[in-house]
Amino acid sequence: MEDYKLVKHAAPRKYSYNDSKTVIHVKSSTPFMSAVKRIDKTFGYYDSKYTKKGKPIPNENKNVGYITVRGMGKTILKVMNLALYFEHEQNRKVEVFTKTLTVLDELKSTNKDKDDVFQKRQVSCVELRIHFTKS
């Protein structure tokens, strides 16, 4: 396979604007603490808020009950650590799901006469659901 250069592509996922507020993707270069802070901030966004006089501001996001955290491949370890952190440090209810994702590998041929090869590869993935409610 010397004639090919591997280009990895992101796991295909559906675009949804609202997902950007409830789904957090952890990658291998994400530091553990920045993932923790990002999740914490998202909780803050969905917390019930009050006016200066102490009246509650109606929450428009009542349907959202948890935040999803996903990581695949070598990030699984980091995601599991996140699960432990939120379960024990913050006493939140955490659900763990395992998944298998199919991703696309592009083998770019360095030889201009040979065609590129596209392959599918399966990667394991972990999904956490960290609930707002504390146990």
């Binding site: 992101a10 295909p12 996922r13 559906k14 675009y15 696309l104």
Partner: peptide, 8 residues
């Protein structure tokens, strides 16, 4: 499709 490096 969420188009960040998903399409070659």
């Amino acid at each position: 499709l969420n188009e960040v490096s998903a399409l070659p």
